[in-house]
Design a protein around this nucleic acid. Structure first.
Length: 222
DNA sequence: GACCAGGCACATC
DNA sequence: GATGTGCATGGT
């Protein structure tokens, strides 16, 4: 259900952010496969640490489906160590690879030819792939019109009254805010989410309002 | 030394 | 269902 006022507000915010930060050229990654691996490695992790892990994989010439399939999980964990949670993430990558092999005969392109809703369900059924990771894969590796919701998006848009609650806002509710009120445009979805992340990072660094948006800290876990 | 980062699964109540 | 906890490195 499109709300013209919300739609206009979102596009104004997008323009402000675009003027402030410029195009973000997301996702940083040379291939679809690298984007997918990056999406798993970046779970609750600073991107600089993901870059180190990806560098290690490239140094080993291991950033391909076949190479990673053959690599023992322990060795993979060692290479991605800088990205944190390395045992968990190595296991998640192996689970994805097994899925890709058995379901799509190791073909990323074949995987992305699947109906969008069906593929999203399949990804979500994998252990270690949650909504944000699945949507990042679909948007940034598959060029599918899906809006990615992350912690920054939840914080910024819930605290500025776009949805009723705070950080506990449901993923799908927040996603509908964007997908119902913006034109279905992969490039827009891509750029907007990347700009929101940039905004979130800048706010945390500067601790001053930016583009009229107040400093926002995450809520501390006990 | 404390806090945080482009999450997710699982146990417990 | 909601809440708490484990998984872990590296930058500020």
């Amino acid at each position: 259900m499109k709300d013209k006022k919300i739609s206009r507000s979102l596009l104004i915010i997008y323009d402000l952010l675009y003027k402030k930060f410029g195009p973000r050229h997301w996702w940083p990654g040379e291939t679809k496969f690298e984007v997918i691996i990056g999406a798993i490695l970046t779970q609750n992790t600073a991107w600089v640490n993901v870059e180190k892990a990806v560098r290690n994989l490239k140094k080993e010439k291991a950033l391909s489906v076949s190479k990673l399939c053959r690599m023992p999980e322990k060795k993979l964990a060692g290479l991605i160590r800088p990205s944190g949670y390395y045992n968990v993430k190595a296991n998640r990558i192996k689970i994805f690879l097994k899925f890709l092999n058995t379901r799509y005969n190791s073909s990323i392109n074949r995987m992305f030819k699947t109906d969008l809703c069906k593929l999203r369900e399949e990804l979500l059924a994998l252990k270690g792939i949650g909504q944000e990771t699945a949507d990042s894969i679909l948007l940034y590796a598959g060029n599918k019109p899906v809006f990615v919701i992350d912690a920054y998006t939840k914080r910024v848009f819930s605290r500025h009254g776009f949805v009723s609650h705070d950080q506990d806002v449901e993923y799908r509710e927040m996603q509908s805010l964007f997908m119902d009120n913006l034109p279905e445009d992969v490039r827009l979805f891509n750029e907007f989410h990347a700009l929101i992340v940039e905004l979130g990072k800048s706010i945390c660094k500067s601790k001053k309002p930016l583009c009229g948006i107040c400093p926002i800290r995450s809520i501390r876990r006990k």
